[in-house]
Amino acid sequence: MNAKYMFSLVAVIVLFLLAYAGVEGAGLHVLFGILIPYAAIAVFTVGFVWRIVNWAQSPVPFRIPTTCGQQKSLTWISPAAIDNPATNGAVVIRMILEILLFRSLFRNLKFHFNEGNRFSYIWEKWLWLGALAFHWAFLAVVIRHLRFFAEPVPFWVQWVEQLDSFFRVEFFTDFLQIGLPGIFLSGLVLLAAAVYLLLRRIIIPQVKYISLAADFFPLFLIIGIALSGIAMRYFLKEDIVGIKEFTMGLVTFHPSIPANVSGIFYVHLFFVSVLLAYFPFSKLMHLGGIFMSPTRNLANNSRTQRHVNIWNYPVKVHTYEEYEEEFREKMIEAGLPVEKEL
């Protein structure tokens, strides 16, 4: 047991109860269905922009790109053009690859003592794999959700749906019936990857030691979102047409509450609202932060271009020329060498 993840888990359970009891018990459909979602999207958008503007106002004194290869140098030394970018074009390519493939995480190593206390490194790809699966699945789920937010549903949303449901699993028992509606892999991958990333933080002692409540909370929240979504799709069977009428009402600013939708839908929606509102103030801002990191967005060109530190304070200097000008006579008297004779 650990206070940090228990705290986050309890927080998510309380959020669940709030939404469920608020809707099923107190009938606060308008609050949880309309007011909170609108507030959340506003907080998310404004908060996100505010954080980025705030970061953009912080001067970067030095070129500090992380370099992972040979710098551009003499013509006969072949440079690592992308891993040690010398131009803005190369920076863009490196940034795109980083965002799409998490290359820096791919370099993750584990340290380890062999027999006889020989220090060695081990390739550790699980974090990379888990993180990549998690983020891509999240993206696929979000794009698929646009079917609720667009009419007519754009063709590229349908492409993602088709791709995502290529794996048809249909089985049928007395208590479990899976197959219609079809399985969307991304939802399940999202849940599995989030659970893996959570267990990693709970089980590996070193990772647990550096994990804070702020690391656990979004994971529990996203697991809650995925569980409630999966429950709706495969088990509870919500009135999808009613839900789409509701979401279309939200985005066309004519909100209305659907008739036969269960509390779990409002839980799902409330979890998402909390995630959105929490986003700008949390570590989740790495979504915007990656673009603002000086270790990633600068070209390593300090040998070819002069970069003046924007922090530089106008220091009053006394150059040697001025010094000699002032003391030339005395210097010559004392027999010291001068650059310019009298």
Partner: peptide
């Protein structure tokens, strides 16, 4: 660059709002 990035961000985030602008989409 920052402003351009933020404009793209806001356009993406508000996709459902401008895509459905002026459409009523009842069931």
């Amino acid at each position: 660059k920052v402003v351009a990035g933020l404009v793209i961000f806001v356009i993406l985030i508000t996709f459902p709002f401008w895509y459905n602008l002026g459409k009523a989409a009842p069931a």
